[in-house]
Design a protein around this nucleic acid. Sequence first.
DNA 1: CAAGTCTTCTACGGTTCGTAGAACACTTAT
DNA 2: ATAAGTGTTCTACGAACCGTAGAAGACTTG
Lengths: 121, 121
Amino acid sequence: MATLGELERSIMDLLWDADDALTANDLRDALAGGGTPGPALTTVLTVLSRLENKGFVSRDRDNRPHLYRAVMSRADHMAELMHEVLGSAPDHAAVLARFVGQVSNDDVASLRRMLDGAQPR
Amino acid sequence: MATLGELERSIMDLLWDADDALTANDLRDALAGGGTPGPALTTVLTVLSRLENKGFVSRDRDNRPHLYRAVMSRADHMAELMHEVLGSAPDHAAVLARFVGQVSNDDVASLRRMLDGAQPR
DNA sequence: CAAGTCTTCTACGGTTCGTAGAACACTTAT
DNA sequence: ATAAGTGTTCTACGAACCGTAGAAGACTTG
């Protein structure tokens, strides 16, 4: 999977946080935080096109202005990235051991719950 | 953390798989697989310098030729990458849920063992 | 010292990313 | 329908990163 640049990531974050689809203008406005001017609208559109090419964003061309939305949820995307990393190592168990050793207590609790799943306690 | 290019990753893999430190020549030889010529020695040295700058490789300058070794183990490196991904999302639990849902049975077993740890069954 | 080996310096071409103007397409109000 | 406004596409540039490696310098060894 391709890696995201800084602005690309910011835009994905906005799309992930939005409940429904956004327009390029919505994004440009959201990117203009505080006194900083933020990128030009065309810049946002260029990046959206690139994200569409990479398969991260889908675009509704029937609406005018076009509506953009994230193809995957952030959680799915991140989980896939983590999988990619894990899959690129031959010794999964060793990686997982280090990984688990470093996660916060909260995350350990989450993992435990998920693994226990349907099992009785 | 910076992301690795293709050759950079190949070299890291060789260093990770090696038990002790390697020379640039060792690496060039290892990279010349089969009939393919592989990169020039200077190419390997350039990449090693870049990896050193990124903090992935350490170099023993007292030896001649210099000895190169990975700063972290592959497992540590990968675990750190996974952490970085997880940390870049606000909702860890959601990411972990997707992640666990996609791992192989073997990996689930590994995780279970690690989480159970010292606990009685 | 000479020859060979290793390292550093420098540099180029490809790719990605942020950036955005210019031109074109589309919508809407008059 | 035509003009004004808004949105999209096309094109392009500079910075950064990566693979690539020659040329020149430093070091080792015979």
